[in-house]
Design a protein around this nucleic acid. Structure first.
Lengths: 103, 103
DNA sequence: TTGACATATCGCAAAACGTCGATATAATGG
DNA sequence: CCATTATATCGACGTTTTGCGATATGTCAA
């Protein structure tokens, strides 16, 4: 696991839409309908579902998810033609810990 | 005390120089020489001293300190012709707490 | 009051970011 | 193979950020 880059993390968090996505992903069942046989919790939510809720284009949504991923905040799993994103709770804990001790 | 605006805070933290300043201010005695009869810990460090250590102009330093202040991360005290900045540890704790519980 | 110093603010140019539409790539089903 | 669907990437363009120099403001000392 790549070490945390605080600047990259803070930049990723400096945007309303991206914070919104992270928040929705805290409880996917509460915010997204079920998608086929895929476990929302284990695997995540696909880009189209997130796009539907954000008021933005698929292009923007996909880019924002990449930003979150590069910052280490979410994890992506490709299954067939879908890419499922879920929070990386481990990494998020690390970040919270960094902030608490080093900020 | 004005409530925290996470986006403003994250933006303020999305910059190497500003993180550096916050880090120096964690232990002013370790990073700055004494300044007159002023208690570095209680009152803070003046803009010129911070400017000397940052590799940037007085103008930039002053602006960055304003950004940190608007985000609630530091507190400014004007004494004579100097403005002393110190970390607002209370606010920083609040932010760390926000991140830990709401991120 | 004037001069000198510390800080703040203004206006700029370059870089980065936000967001989109268009297009490319990947995967599936016929 | 082809059409379709999901996602990723590219190019564009307006907005924001970065960092600077120049200048304004505040404060003290003479």
């Amino acid at each position: 696991m790549k070490p945390i880059d605080p600047i990259e993390v803070f930049k990723a968090l400096s945007n309303e839409a991206r914070l919104q996505i992270l928040d929705w992903l805290k409880d996917p069942k509460a915010h997204f309908g079920p998608q086929g046989g895929v476990d929302l919790i284990e695997v995540g939510v696909c880009v189209s579902q997130i796009t539907s809720k954000l008021n933005m284009t698929q292009s923007t949504t996909s880019q924002y998810l990449s930003v979150l991923q590069r910052a280490g905040l979410v994890h992506a799993t490709r299954l067939g033609k879908w890419t499922y994103y879920r929070r990386d709770e481990e990494a998020i804990k690390e970040i919270a810990s960094y902030i608490q001790h080093d900020l």
